[in-house]
Design a protein around this nucleic acid. Structure first.
Length: 371
DNA sequence: CACATTTGACCCTC
DNA sequence: GAGGGTCAAATGTG
């Protein structure tokens, strides 16, 4: 069947990735073109697989992830299914940050295009944008999030509290939409660090929450001032599982539309240039470093969740939330990079969303609802 | 010096 | 009034 072919395609992609990984020690930074060609080839293969998977998924609403579909292939021997699944899963996990990033952007894009599209992505995913008028207020997640948000989209600049007092302006519940998910933290290293998601965040508050053992952290986009980016996130460690964070995103990033990170894919020449430039800026991994790790955010700059091109790598301590000091590096959010890479060659508007779908232990809160 | 984090106080909503 | 969200001064860091 077609699904069997899909497995083969994915396996081919994995194989190409492995080959690239194996050849990396032999490649120099001057060999952009070779790297670029390999990457493009891999992307093409996965794109093809993705398109097939998308088609399949819509036929089966119970399938939420490529993993599910892979594992359920009846035609494949169990061994090969597991192999392919493991390849893909490993790759997905290693690209966790990108996955989150792309997934979020995809959600936003999908929602703006067609609210129902978002639901197709899987029942675990819910975008909350409950308006004040909505009679059916979403079930509140345990502690994060109220149910009432004015629908008007985000606009930080006006800070329109407009109250009579000339005191400092405060705004609340103005972000329109919320997306809540639970994400695991690494069980090694500094587990205090909220999971990276491909953006740079600045912590602006922390508060003890009634009924919660752990305080809630309040983060906003580092570029809030620079680009009027309204994105915020709340990070709360779960009582029942300290190795899990509940992360609530509010607002959507506008900073990735800045001139430093064009949201509109540049012409192919520019894409090639960008990719090559990015790759050239990255230290070539040693043979002990898997390609997947190289591609993952962890290798792109510890502590700085934004993709830093030519950057020094942010603060050395690595402690604290996923933030990077701005202004000391060229920001290039992963989402845009991915956008450029994965959306350029396909007629489909969303290319790698399924492949980069959040790993299975990332769960979007079912309590939220989309608007 | 510039930026991030911490933290107590303030404000808003329920 | 309680609780959550935000502000902004103080402090830390590179």
């Amino acid at each position: 069947m077609e699904e069997t072919n899909t497995i083969s395609i994915i396996r081919q992609g994995c194989k190409l990735a492995r080959e690239l990984e194996a050849n990396l020690p032999n490649l120099t930074e001057q060999q952009h073109n070779m790297l670029l060609t390999s990457c493009v080839e891999i992307i093409k293969v996965f794109n093809t697989a993705r398109e097939r998977l998308c088609t399949t998924q819509y036929q089966d609403p119970m399938s939420h992830t490529p993993m599910n579909m892979l594992i359920r292939q009846p035609q494949e021997s169990q061994q090969t299914q597991i192999e392919a699944a493991a390849d893909l899963q490993g790759w997905l996990r290693s690209n966790y940050s990108q996955a989150m990033d792309i997934f979020q952007l995809q959600l936003q894009a999908d929602q703006s295009r067609n609210p129902f599209e978002t639901q197709k992505l899987g029942s675990d995913v819910h975008v909350a944008a409950a308006g004040r008028d909505h009679a059916e207020a979403p079930a509140r997640s345990r502690s994060i999030g109220g149910g009432e948000f004015p629908v008007p989209p985000i606009d930080v600049s006006d800070s329109g509290t407009g109250n009579s007092s000339s005191q400092r302006q405060r705004r609340r519940r103005d972000d329109g939409e919320r997306r809540t998910l639970t994400v695991p933290v690494p069980r090694i290293g500094n587990t205090e660090i909220p999971p990276e998601d491909g953006f740079t965040w600045r912590k602006y508050g922390q508060k003890e929450i009634l009924g919660s053992k752990y305080p809630r952290g309040y983060f906003r986009c580092t570029h809030q001032k620079l680009y009027q980016c309204p994105a915020k996130k709340l990070v709360q460690r779960l009582d029942e599982d300290p190795y899990m964070f509940e992360v609530t995103y509010r607002g959507s990033h506008t900073c990735h539309m800045s001139s430093t990170a064009p949201s509109i894919p540049p012409p192919p020449d520019q894409i090639s240039h960008d990719i090559a430039q990015f790759m050239a800026s990255q230290p070539l991994p040693s043979s002990s470093v898997p390609l997947s790790s190289w591609l993952s955010m962890d290798s792109l700059g510890r502590g700085g969740s934004g993709m830093a091109i030519g950057g020094g790598g942010g603060s050395g301590s690595g402690a604290g939330p996923s933030t990077t000091r701005s202004g000391k590096e060229v920001e290039f959010p992963v989402a845009d990079m991915a956008d450029v890479m994965f959306n350029s060659g396909s007629s489909s508007s969303n290319s790698m969303d399924f492949l980069f779908q959040a790993p299975e232990d990332v769960k979007w809160k079912p309590g939220d609802k989309q608007g």
